[in-house]
Design a protein around this nucleic acid. Structure first.
Lengths: 139, 139
DNA sequence: GCTTGACCTTCCTGTTGCTGGAAAGTTCAA
DNA sequence: TTGAACTTTCCAGCAACAGGAAGGTCAAGC
């Protein structure tokens, strides 16, 4: 099948498939005489795997490792689990960062009338001229 | 004061200050005869404002709007609050996305021994060959 | 045999928000 | 006068693609 069909069947856009090939995430596809990339059912499965891993937030590089582990029938599940653990730790970091941002914003918004008056505690908070801490960690 | 001093006092790296100037977020600084940028106390305040807004996740463009509103003594607080609301909505979207990723990963990890055995439900889950949904939304 | 339209190819640019580095000029103190 | 510690501009690169240009290919319909 051509790249467009593989794209439809895997859910990975053709452009992205080419990109993945160019960065070495997936093997270069075979070509027809005219230079068209050719894909088989296995390739589509690989692409789906990649797609799912990416949607869970694994970086392209991490997906590369996962693919290697996936293909290695003798790998230990511990290696895979370690990657997943890292991913969860990443997510947790981002979650707490976002939660803190959210809390601060909500706090500022609660004090803002949100009407036609120019008085605005949000801006005052950002300017650091008022109440308490606005941004605790710049990260 | 020079850019390095302004950087130290505002918490915004000199490189970043130049960048903000280059993209029009902040006004071009005055220059000495030799071409060195010169900053005053007000500029440092502006930089701090920018820094805080960025740390709350506002995009550089949004910070531009906030700066305009900040300087406009006659703006309505409603405009500011609307920007903040958008920001919170963004954050909420990201939070639920991350939470969903996390749940899925935890779910997969719970079933993985994480030892030397090759059997790994995480990979099976990513391959889509097993249990239930792995990635509900590719987004 | 020819056209048309849907494919496909590569290559280049742009996105966001910086950061690092090179090459060169400036300032200030010892 | 020399040296360190600034500063300047410009160019590249990070992640992970997306958009688009210019051109080749393929299959169907006439």
């Amino acid at each position: 099948m051509n790249i467009g069909t593989a794209a439809r069947q895997s859910g990975v856009p053709a452009k992205t498939i080419r990109y993945y090939e160019s960065v070495g995430l997936i093997q270069p596809a075979d070509r027809t005489a005219a230079g068209y990339r050719v894909y088989g059912r296995e390739d589509v499965e690989t692409l789906r795997f990649v797609q799912r891993a990416r949607s869970l937030g694994f970086s392209v590089e991490e997906v590369g490792s996962l693919l290697t582990l996936w293909r290695d029938r003798s790998r230990s599940s511990a290696e895979v689990k370690a990657l997943a653990r890292h991913r969860v730790a990443d997510i947790d970091r981002k979650l707490s960062e976002l939660t803190e941002m959210r809390d601060t914003l909500i706090h500022l918004m609660e004090r803002c009338h949100g009407d036609a008056r120019p008085d605005c505690p949000i801006l005052q908070g950002l300017a650091g001229k008022s109440p308490e801490k606005v941004a605790k960690s710049a990260h």
